[in-house]
Computed example of a mutant assay.
Amino acid sequence: MKNLLFIITILSIPIGIIFNLFDIVGGNIFLALGFLGVFVFYLIRVIKDFYSIAYKKIIVLKVMIILMSFCLFTKYLYHLFGDYPSLIIVPVFLLSSIIYLLTERRKQTKLSLVTILYLLLSIPLFGFEFNNSPRHYIPQSWYDRYGETSHYIVSFDFKFDYPETKLLNEKAFDLKEKQLYYDAIEVYEEARKLEPKNLSLLFELSEAYARTNELEIAVELLDKAIIVDSSYSEFYNNRGLLFYKLKKDEKAIIDYEKAIELDPNQPVYHANLALVYFYQDTFDKACEEIQIAESRGFNLSDSKILREFKDEQCN
């Protein structure tokens, strides 16, 4: 009976991953039960082995499996509180598991099975990408807070006071399109010396700074643009996106609502607002904004998170 329960626990983990790969409801439940089962099983084993001389040698690996159950749970279910502990736990587990597999002559079947499984589950933590892949060992948000975005940007017909400013703006824009963001910033800043309140420069420079991870500076630039002219909904939408990336959800909501007030027919604004409500667990409002976004023409297939949320939570 114990062996059967152990097998079911172990199988729950790959089943959960497969369910998530194919967007089948319940994948996270299987993962959570699997990791919890392994955690409890080896916690009991470590307590028993502590008083056994025969198993003192491999008790370190069992302790690491307990800790890895915690780390993998947080990584595969996208909980942030496991990021910093994983910096220490994952390397120690990798080292202890390799030593065990290469040097231990009397290997335990269950321990070997879990060790190999956890080694395989550790591979995606180091950059291997697939659908619903786990949080990486070094999460992207640590070095790229802006990330891939679905913000809404249009071409503005902003005027320039001097032809030199317009030429610099065009040069900087080309650099930004080539992802040479630091070079683009230098040119934009040079242009700002000529026209410090030019809306085009403030807007495009904000985007360039965001791409270099300087989100706070990007917000300040949009602040200045809004002071100059508060009639552009795109300014509020982009600033809302930056606040969202900075974990300032309340400010993001205020900006998205202002963008909607200025342009209620833009579906992306409603979709962005729905995303913030989703992460705040305000599901009723999220569903309402999704419905409005779709009625305005938003394609829900463009947002996997909102699509899955609607299927699971919205009637």
Rank of each mutant, 00 (worst) to 15 (best):
Ser233Pro: 00
Glu189Ile: 03
Val276Lys: 03
Lys247Met: 14
Phe243Trp: 15
Lys251Val: 07
Asn299Val: 14
Val276His: 05
Lys248Gln: 15
Leu242Asp: 09
Glu250Pro: 00
Val219Glu: 07
Leu215Lys: 04
Tyr188Arg: 04
Ala210Arg: 01
Lys193Thr: 11
Cys287Thr: 09
Glu294Asn: 04
Lys285Cys: 08
Val228Met: 09
Arg239Ile: 00
Glu189Pro: 00
Gln291Ile: 14
Lys247Phe: 12
Glu207Met: 06
Ile290Thr: 06
Leu246His: 08
Gln291Tyr: 11
Glu257Phe: 02
Asp284Met: 10
Ser295Gln: 14
Leu222Asn: 08
Asp281Cys: 04
Ile290Val: 12
Glu189Asn: 07
Tyr188Asn: 06
Glu214Gly: 02
Gln280His: 04
Ala225Gly: 13
Leu221Gly: 00
Ala259Val: 07
Val276Gln: 05
Ile217Met: 10
Glu288Ser: 14
Glu190Gly: 02
Ala210Glu: 11
Gln266Val: 10
Asn213Glu: 08
Phe298Cys: 05
Leu215Phe: 04
Ser230Phe: 06
Ile217Ala: 06
His270Ala: 11
Tyr277Val: 04
Leu215Glu: 03
Gly240Phe: 05
Ser200Pro: 00
Ile226Asn: 08
Lys285Met: 15
Arg296Lys: 15
Asn213Gly: 12
Asp255Glu: 14
Thr212Glu: 11
Glu294Pro: 01
Tyr236Ile: 03
Gln291Trp: 08
Ala286Lys: 00
Glu190Gln: 13
Arg239Val: 00
Glu207Leu: 10
Asn299Trp: 11
Asn198Cys: 09
Leu202Pro: 00
Ile253Gln: 02
Asp249Gly: 08
Glu250Thr: 14
Ser233Leu: 03
Lys245Ala: 07
Leu201Val: 12
Glu190Met: 08
Asn299Met: 14
Ile253Val: 15
Ala274Lys: 00
Phe278Lys: 03
Asn238Gly: 13
Phe298Ser: 03
Glu214Asp: 15
Ala218Tyr: 03
Val219Asp: 05
Asp284Thr: 13
Leu202Arg: 05
Ala293His: 03
Glu289Trp: 02
Lys247Cys: 06
Tyr279Glu: 15
Pro267Tyr: 15
Val228Thr: 13
Leu201Ala: 10
Tyr279Gly: 05
Val276Thr: 14
Gly297Glu: 12
Tyr244Met: 07
Asp223Tyr: 04
Ala208Leu: 12
Leu215Ile: 07
Ile254Glu: 15
Arg211Gln: 15
Tyr277Lys: 03
Pro196Phe: 10
Asp249His: 11
Lys251Arg: 14
Leu242Pro: 01
Phe235Ser: 03
Glu288Asn: 13
Leu221Ser: 02
Tyr236Thr: 02
Lys224Phe: 12
Ser206Leu: 07
Leu222Lys: 04
Ser233Trp: 00
Ile292Gln: 11
Glu216Gln: 13
Ile227Arg: 05
Glu214Arg: 06
Leu241Pro: 00
Ala252Tyr: 01
Ser230Met: 05
Leu242Tyr: 12
Asp281Gly: 03
Glu234Met: 07
Glu257Leu: 14
Phe235Lys: 01
Asp249Glu: 12
Lys285Asp: 15
Pro264Gly: 08
Ala225Arg: 01
Ala259Leu: 11
Lys197Ile: 04
Leu215Tyr: 03
Leu202Val: 13
Ser206Trp: 04
Leu275Phe: 13
Glu294Val: 09
Ala271Thr: 04
